[in-house]
Amino acid sequence: MPVRRGHVAPQNTFLDTIIRKFEGQSRKFIIANARVENCAVIYCNDGFCELCGYSRAEVMQRPCTCDFLHGPRTQRRAAAQIAQALLGAEERKVEIAFYRKDGSCFLCLVDVVPVKNEDGAVIMFILNFEVVMEKDMVGSPAHDTNHRGPPTSWLAPGRAKTFRLKLPALLALTARESSVRSGGAGGAGAPGAVVVDVDLTPAAPSSESLALDEVTAMDNHVAGLGPAEERRALVGPGSPPRSAPGQLPSPRAHSLNPDASGSSCSLARTRSRESCASVRRASSADDIEAMRAGVLPPPPRHASTGAMHPLRSGLLNSTSDSDLVRYRTISKIPQITLNFVDLKGDPFLASPTSDREIIAPKIKERTHNVTEKVTQVLSLGADVLPEYKLQAPRIHRWTILHYSPFKAVWDWLILLLVIYTAVFTPYSAAFLLKETEEGPPATECGYACQPLAVVDLIVDIMFIVDILINFRTTYVNANEEVVSHPGRIAVHYFKGWFLIDMVAAIPFDLLI
């Protein structure tokens, strides 16, 4: 008679799926529990143990900040960024110097990925580790590398530091407007667009060049630039800015003055950032001319202004700041037409079709709590990747769950009947059967004279019903998954307890 339990259901295979997918890609990662103190490590794979030199037993239950890997060259700011990422709910990448158990130093890129439950609360953290440099290539500990984003994938490793954006290309926007319009339909740009040429040739750093990471940081200074100062900065030398009595002219307006920039070969870094931020506020060169004239017309309804409409929906549905990093990277690809469009465009503009998908598509409701890094690593669709929660398995109709209350009560009843059979069957065979043979035949009273025979008949009927119930009862397979398919249940029961239950259900007393 089957006594099969499996009270692990309803099970959740999400954690096993993450481990299996990460292991298949030869990654070095740990999984931490966000619900406990210090976000203790609950799993670390073999790749991480080989990377740091510690065994799994030495890593388990330690804080996922990996303070046991810190050393003299470990930056405090990087460690603080990892700790801050564990307090938030967004994906974050941090470069930090770690030390192995043998004392060797290596520069590592740590990717902190939160995993949320159905309520939107962070319950786990996945920390992925990628070695960037070994100890002989690690720089000085005073050099802070965590304020910069990861290198873009479309640049060669040897040319990542030679990417320079020439400031004269930004200063000569109005001069290039006529050349853009003359391109017409034969050019790649839309009317009114501004073409910015980027020099990728390796050259020595000069005062006129600005690194790509500095251009990325310009967006942080746009908020500090007032509207009046932006307007004066875009007017140009024809209309000098008016300053109040006793007030000095704005240095932001002076930063885009061609006369002032041409007199000296070098520009201050602050002026460069502010000038680029001011130019980015204009949607095209037409807006710059309109600002000089004193009238700013409404933005025209053409394809170039609607190019950012799908980007707005993608940004609203993005799951991490990696989408913004990807957008900034692609927006700086050289030799393309940049349409400086305000994100607050007309909502009635139709979304044009684009061959290049900048932001990841909208994630469906079932995966809105899973970050983009987890979705990318697992390579699963929205119909396959579940949320991290207890999910009731989908069972067929008329199927009994093996952990249901009805099955528990039924098993206790069958257990009592088995005990009765084990006690009274030998007793009936030894004593009652002998008395029946010696006594007179009682054929007239039937079952009324033999109450134990009636009980034995009921017990046999219950055993037959138990066999039928076992054909529709779920079970737990070797992978700790609840199986509810009727065919698989029948095959599993035939290979197991079916023969024993059938022999126990045969009414031998009635056959004798």
Rank of each mutant, 00 (worst) to 15 (best):
R4M: 15
R5M: 08
V8L: 07
N12Y: 15
T17Q: 08
F22V: 07
F22P: 02
F22I: 06
E23Q: 06
G24M: 14
G24C: 09
I31R: 01
A32Q: 01
A32L: 01
N33R: 06
N33V: 05
A34W: 01
R35N: 08
E37P: 12
A40G: 14
Y43M: 01
C44W: 01
N45S: 14
G47I: 01
F48W: 13
F48L: 01
C49R: 03
L51I: 07
R56Y: 03
R56I: 01
R56V: 01
M60H: 01
M60E: 03
Q61I: 01
R62S: 12
T65W: 09
G71Y: 01
A78W: 01
A80C: 15
Q81N: 14
Q84M: 14
L86F: 01
L87C: 15
E91Q: 08
R92K: 11
K93R: 13
V94N: 01
E95G: 03
A97V: 14
F98V: 01
D102H: 01
D102Y: 01
S104N: 13
C105K: 05
F106R: 01
F106A: 01
L107A: 14
C108A: 11
V110Y: 01
V112Y: 01
V113P: 01
V115L: 13
V115K: 06
K116Y: 10
N117K: 13
E118Y: 06
A121P: 11
M124A: 12
M124D: 01
I126F: 07
L127H: 01
F129W: 01
F129N: 01
V132G: 15
M133N: 06
E134V: 06
V138D: 14
A142V: 14
A142I: 09
H143V: 11
H147R: 07
R148E: 15
G149W: 06
T152M: 13
R159G: 10
A160N: 14
T162G: 14
F163Y: 07
R164H: 08
R164V: 07
K166P: 05
L167K: 05
L171I: 05
L173Y: 15
L173H: 15
V180N: 09
R181P: 13
S182K: 09
A188H: 12
A188T: 09
G192L: 03
D199P: 15
D199Q: 05
T201Q: 09
P205I: 06
P205V: 06
S206A: 09
L210S: 10
L210A: 06
D213T: 14
A217S: 08
M218C: 15
N220L: 06
V222K: 15
G224T: 05
G224V: 13
P227E: 06
P240V: 12
P241S: 10
R242K: 14
S243C: 08
G246K: 04
Q247K: 06
L248P: 08
P249S: 04
S250E: 05
S250R: 12
P251I: 05
P251S: 13
A253N: 05
S255H: 09
P258R: 11
S261R: 10
S261M: 10
S264P: 04
S266W: 04
L267N: 05
A268R: 14
E274Q: 12
C276L: 08
R280Y: 07
S283D: 08
A285F: 14
D286L: 09
I288D: 13
I288R: 11
I288E: 07
A290R: 04
R292Y: 14
G294A: 10
G294W: 04
V295F: 14
H302Q: 07
S304I: 11
H309S: 11
L311Y: 09
R312W: 10
S318M: 01
S318N: 12
T319E: 14
T319G: 08
T319Q: 05
D321F: 04
D321Y: 09
D323T: 09
L324F: 14
V325M: 14
V325F: 11
R326I: 04
Y327A: 12
P334R: 07
Q335K: 14
T337N: 14
L338D: 14
L338V: 09
N339R: 02
V341I: 06
G345M: 14
D346C: 09
P347H: 15
F348Y: 11
S351R: 06
I359Y: 11
I359F: 05
A360R: 11
K362D: 14
E365S: 07
E365Y: 11
T367M: 14
V377F: 06
V377W: 04
L378M: 09
S379G: 04
L380T: 04
V384Y: 06
P386D: 05
P386T: 01
